[in-house]
């Protein structure tokens, strides 16, 4: 058993185990932490696949920013305390069966006859000065520069959308509505009441 294989099986074991624990976790914070572990395992797998840059990016961006964001929201809304006991039992068998069938079928498709080593041989290991970043950058900034810019715009839109959704203007603020002020009519502000004259009573005085 080569070291690559040992690493592979270790990482995949942790991956599968922590993902299973994550979906069955009742505590939301615990689930987030196990997701973090999932991502670490995935990053390990990616390094085995010689995609170092993306592995590091996964850790830095994904775990570092997105998971932290998750934790922020959970803590802010106090969700972990308000989570009720989930009722898994009813649907679990059905879901597991369906998932198992999907996995079985995909295994049949993606099995060794179609994608094994005899069809796609393992590539040669890269040399020590192989710079994954350089290779990626050479492609990214020349052939794929346009999607790159679009991705930036997409992020900008996401920021604006997130802020616009959640932002609450202050509730009891007094402000002016100019158009309403200009379109006011006299009878909205003033009411004239006529008091009928009663001659008899006046004369009696």
């Amino acid at each position: 058993m080569t070291s690559a294989q040992i690493l592979f099986y270790t990482f995949s074991f942790f991956l599968v185990a922590s993902s299973l624990i994550m979906i069955f976790a009742k505590n939301a914070a615990k689930a987030v932490l196990f997701l973090v572990l999932v991502f670490f395992s995935v990053a390990g797998l990616w390094i085995l696949l010689e995609a170092e840059f993306l592995a590091i990016t996964l850790i830095l961006v994904y775990v570092g920013a997105v998971m932290v964001l998750f934790l922020f929201v959970i803590k802010m809304l106090n969700i972990d305390k308000s989570t009720l006991r989930a009722k898994f039992a009813g649907y679990l068998p059905l879901g597991l069966i369906v998932a198992a069938i999907i996995v079985a079928e995909m295994t049949m498709v993606l099995g060794h006859e179609q994608f094994g080593l005899n069809i796609y041989p393992a590539p040669e290991k890269a040399s020590a000065d192989y710079s994954n970043i350089t290779i990626l950058a050479l492609q990214l900034y020349t052939d794929y520069v346009y999607p790159f810019e679009l991705a930036a715009v997409l992020l900008l839109i996401a920021i604006i959308a997130a802020i616009a959704l959640v932002h609450r203007p202050e509730q009891n603020r007094k402000k002016q509505d100019i158009s309403e002020q200009v379109s006011v009519r006299a009878k909205d502000r003033l009411r004239i009441v006529s008091i009928a004259k009663n001659n008899k009573e006046v004369n009696n005085d």
Binding site: Y91, G95, V98, I101, I102, E105, M106
Partner: peptide
Amino acid sequence: AFFMILSLLFILT
């Protein structure tokens, strides 16, 4: 979501 998954399975098969 489950119906979607089920349909996916069906199509796959």
